[in-house]
Amino acid sequence: MTITVDDYTYRYGEEPAVDRVSLTVADGEFLVLAGPNGSGKTTLVRGFNGLLTPDEGAVRVNGHPVADDPVAARAGVGMVFQDPRDGFVAATVGADVAFGPENLGLARDEIDRRVDDALDAVRMSDRGGERIDELSGGERERVAIAGALAMDPDHLVLDEPFTGLDLRARESVLDRLAALDADGVSVVVVTHDLRDLHPLADRTVVLSDGSVALDAADPSPAALRELGVRPP
């Protein structure tokens, strides 16, 4: 159960946003992908499930090339966008969380079970009937995570999940991430601020100008600061 990235290169026009990046997300690993704005973090993770196709290089999810079966990759890699509203496709919490499992063609009982489990995992089990646009920012983030979890992914990728969240909402999301990590789901969090994530991270990879500038289990604050990342 791994995500393997080999020489991933993606260009916007002539300029490479991600330049020959290779890395592996191991089974059950909690990986923090850090870097300043414009360093290529989002462009890289969107290749994990085939939302972007690299100009060069390849990505494999659980050993299978993403290019061969993007749907399998998307079922295996749940993704939460930077702005959770970008990922919502339904008006109510329950309908949105069910959207992914429905697309997998599962039986109704299994869909209902997954929706219940996913909402329970983000502590929103009794709120399936609520309208998403009436939720707070932290609640929306949790619904977006539930939507990804309902796909029963092996890997979960969260792009800047703490943007705009207050302390309580951040703690709530962090609690969920810690629980998922404990359950063996590998988690990749994209961020430029390591303050909250340091205790959870098994490894930190820092991108700078589209390349891996640092890959360490416990990077020094000075090195992080130098690369434009807020240290813990």
Binding site: R74, D86, G105, G147
Partner: peptide, 18 residues
């Protein structure tokens, strides 16, 4: 962005309907 969300969540022409 809407198209991206549909892709990320495995949009299918024939999903399980209620």
């Amino acid at each position: 962005r809407f198209a991206l969300a549909l892709q990320a969540r495995c949009f299918a022409w024939n999903p399980t309907l209620p």
